[in-house]
């Protein structure tokens, strides 16, 4: 039972959260080629290291969170509310 830091609620059990996916910029739907669009849909960096991810604090504040998480150690070096923008 890993604890994840929620910027609104504090450290909470990971079971309260939902993993949404890697964060990726949505291509311009009017201009994207099939290749670009499907890269966005399907291709993943899937790093063994730091990953930029989108999570939902489902059983908490209900906010989407942008999280920088290490996929080997489980460490989290940055987390913020996804709506607040920030350095991507």
């Amino acid at each position: 039972m890993v604890l994840l830091p929620c910027p609104h609620c504090g450290p909470r059990d990971a079971a309260e959260f939902g993993y949404v996916g890697e964060r990726a910029a949505r291509p311009d739907p009017g201009a994207a080629t099939p290749q670009q669009w499907r890269g966005y849909l399907y291709l993943r960096r899937n790093p063994a290291g730091w990953a930029d991810e989108l999570w939902l604090h489902r059983a908490g504040c209900g906010r989407y969170l942008a999280m920088s998480r290490h996929t080997v150690t489980g460490d989290i070096r940055a987390v913020r509310d996804a709506a607040t923008g920030g350095a991507d």
Binding site: G18, V20, L56, Y64, D81, A82, A83, G85
Partner: peptide, 13 residues
Amino acid sequence: GEWLERWLQTERA
């Protein structure tokens, strides 16, 4: 519900 929030919180904040 999560889908609505996702678009409102991430892409169209």
